[in-house]
């Protein structure tokens, strides 16, 4: 039950809720635990609540690390 996935916020709803999309499946989640969520953000959703926003810059940094490994080819 700890499995939670990053979902795209597609619409802000009344009552501190938002509509999110996860690979084509939409559902309403609560925004009671995070401030400043906007349409287009990715949030990590768990038991119906957004726990945190995904930081796109940090995600890029992590991915770049692995891309670099490929380019240098040092490890193959």
């Amino acid at each position: 039950m700890c499995l939670a996935l990053p979902s795209l916020v597609t619409e802000l709803l009344d009552g501190d809720q938002a509509k999110v999309d996860l690979g084509g499946v939409t559902k309403a989640v609560s925004l009671a635990l995070v401030d400043g969520v906007a349409v287009g953000d990715y949030v990590i959703v768990h038991v119906g609540y957004a726990l945190t926003k995904v930081d796109p810059a940090e995600a890029e940094k992590t991915l770049a690390l692995w891309a670099e490994m490929q380019e240098t080819g040092a490890l193959t």
């Binding site: 990053p6 990715y42 991915l63 692995w66």
Partner: peptide, 23 residues
């Protein structure tokens, strides 16, 4: 799906595993 598929990439997994084996 964004932030999911990129973190499941098989080639990158192979490279990471190779790095761990080397290190």
């Amino acid at each position: 799906m964004k932030y999911i598929d990129e973190f499941r990439d098989g080639d990158a997994a192979g490279r990471l595993a190779a790095a761990i084996r080397a290190e």
